[in-house]
């Protein structure tokens, strides 16, 4: 199963964190920074699989030989799009190449939802990000891989997702989001 889906930018700022097992917040942060350390040093031509970060590695070395231990995260897959890293941590029951495709589908779905997605979209609509992810992965299990259905599923949840096209950021947002966005402006400076 998928243990976590993470999105962060080139500076290591998280844009989306979704853990399918309950983790303490500080542990989450440590994991994110460890993975970021790993991922940010990779040359561009290298493969999309990371060695396990130290936090996970202690358990991994043991689990490699025995197939019984499918429960332990053993695979860190990432993809790099422009300013963003998409990371999936999963157990050995997922196929590595399929995960790469899954990230691709996710990004394409976001692209459709936001029409030419960029990092700002994700900051201001991170709720939509979660919604799109929820359409694809539930509880760590992949439920949908078809782009159309994912997009359709998110859109059916309300108009929010459709609104914030690049120029419409200032106004005309869904009620919850309008406020949320205003608030978000304050934080992005960090």
């Amino acid at each position: 199963m998928i243990n976590a889906v993470l999105v962060f930018n080139n500076a290591g700022q998280p844009r989306l964190t979704k853990f399918y097992t309950q983790l303490e917040t500080s542990v989450q942060q440590r994991l994110i920074s460890e993975i970021f350390n790993l991922v940010s040093h990779r040359p561009s031509g290298s493969c999309n699989f990371l060695p396990l970060p130290p936090l996970l590695a202690s358990s991994s070395t043991s689990t490699v030989p025995s197939s019984e231990h499918n429960d332990v995260p053993s695979l860190v897959t990432y993809r790099h799009y422009a300013t963003l890293y998409f990371i999936i941590i999963s157990t050995s029951t997922e196929s590595p190449l399929a995960l790469i495709d899954l990230i691709q589908v996710y990004v394409e779905a976001l692209d459709r939802l936001f029409e030419n997605v960029c990092e700002l979209d994700l900051i201001f609509n991170f709720e939509t990000l979660h919604a799109a992810l929820a359409e694809m992965v539930v509880g760590g299990v992949v439920v949908e891989t078809q782009l159309d259905k994912v997009v359709e599923g998110v859109k059916s949840q309300g108009r929010v997702a459709k609104r914030p096209v690049n120029e419409g950021r200032g106004g005309g947002l869904g009620m919850g989001m309008g406020m949320g966005m205003g608030g978000n402006f304050g934080w992005t400076g960090r």
Partner: peptide, 19 residues
Amino acid sequence: DLKATALLKLVYLEMFGHD
């Protein structure tokens, strides 16, 4: 509405490691 917005912000902050 206000509360929902505040919560949304909080969730965003949580992502950065705030309890």
